[in-house]
Design a protein around this nucleic acid. Structure first.
Lengths: 243, 243
DNA sequence: AGACTTTTAAATGTCAGACAAATAAAATTT
DNA sequence: AAATTTTATTTGTCTGACATTTAAAAGTCT
């Protein structure tokens, strides 16, 4: 692990990259302890604050964890699916809110991914997951539910559908898509949407999953996508008229 | 933006979280300049190094960028699709290498996601993307190609397929899946695989995309998935026997 | 007046040294 | 032998300083 003093990039960024490479390449393995900050400072010929900045960069990516005390130090962290979820959701949310992504594009991606899970979910969903979906549908039908609560329940419903595929890798990959895009979609369409319509489609999906009828789940998700995109068009149209 | 001095967590982590919240909530907008490090130190009642550690955490997530000089400072960064790609690939790669994810699980997820793109790609792929795929197939047929180069070409082929869907959100979501899993799969199966077989399937996929025949693309991807999983089983079987 | 050069100020990047706090092992006492 | 105290190590934080970069302001020359 070496750094280049001639490199114009920050020393702390270079050091972080060097350690990151060592982790990705397997040179440093999970739970292995890194040298102490002072030792790293000596190795890289920099000061301790610079080393610390590098370590904080890595900590922000969940690549290391630190512990104080006599036997403490920085340890290579085993990235958990939960760590990865939350990072993905943050990144996806900002990516969508900061870039001019059309509603159609986001919507298309979200449903394409969700439908990829649906077939597996139809085979494997547990009674528990189905019960979760029914419960969320029930919640969605409550009068006086705020838009935020309806949106959260919507996310929970789709999350249960995705988890029904019983594939943590798939769930992880979709976490960003569903959890980041759903609020965005709700924000755009909540003024126009009909809760009854959505609840009816959710019920149809739950019924199809209960019957383990994959084609029907797929068809209903397409219906839901079509409905959502139509809503967005209506909202855009109305906005155009008033302006 | 406030921090809690009674909180046992690192001050720099708390400060990073406070600023992160301000960005996600829209309180700080893209390209907006944060207060200088000294000002932040005053605001949060901590020292400058602590503030700097917090800012480095945010920089590691591409949430801010810094610039030196008179009009410099830390600015809220517009996360690009490229930033998001590379973060996703790093995270996904480590997630898979550090956790006991079965080959079947990873493989299933990867092909489920890729097939989600295939239908769109069949409609929309450009001549250029098709040409890329053909070129990669040609490269894969070269004798004397190293396993690493074959693997890289394999990734490029599938990447072109995914990009054919012409949906950047979808491409971003799949980058992690395809680029992180493909090397893993190749590592496991390269001893046993038949390049001819893979090239034949790639050709079949390219032909189907050229004909814009979505069902055929889907079917061939299933074939490829089946072949890959069979390979993994063979390798595991052989390993079991020799042991 | 206008173009060029020099100066200055502000900001991040880096360093050195110090102390605080946490933690576990070692030493001591009961 | 058990409980307590001491000690060493390590991360967390602070203070203050200097280096470097950068753009604006001031100054100078034509």
């Amino acid at each position: 692990m070496k750094i280049d003093p001639a490199n114009p990039a920050d020393l702390s960024a270079q050091i972080a990259q060097a350690i990151r490479n060592a982790i990705v390449s397997g040179e440093l393995i999970v739970d292995e302890r890194l040298p102490s900050e002072s030792e790293l400072a000596d190795q890289f010929q920099v000061s301790r604050p610079t080393v610390r900045e590098a370590l904080k960069r890595l900590a922000a990516q969940s690549l290391i964890r630190t512990q104080r005390g006599a036997t403490g130090g920085a340890f290579v962290n085993r990235i958990s699916f939960e760590d990865a979820y939350s990072q993905q959701i943050t990144t996806s949310t900002l990516l969508l809110s900061m870039n001019a992504v059309s509603f159609d594009t986001a919507c298309e991606a979200r449903y394409a991914l969700e439908r990829a899970c649906a077939a597996l979910s139809a085979q494997r969903r547990t009674a528990d997951q189905l019960a979760t979906m029914r419960a969320e549908i029930f919640r969605q039908a409550q009068p006086g539910l705020t838009d935020e609560a309806f949106c959260a329940s919507d996310v929970a419903f789709h999350r249960a559908l995705v988890d029904g595929a019983d594939n943590p890798v798939l769930s992880y990959q979709l976490a960003g898509a569903v959890e980041a895009m759903q609020p965005l979609m709700n924000m755009i369409t909540f003024t126009a949407r009909s809760r009854e319509e959505i609840i009816a489609l959710h019920t149809k999906i739950a019924d199809a999953l209960e019957a383990r009828d994959a084609p029907s789940v797929d068809a209903t998700l397409i219906e839901l996508e079509t409905y959502t995109r139509q809503l967005a068009r209506d909202v855009a149209e109305r906005k155009r008229k008033t302006a």
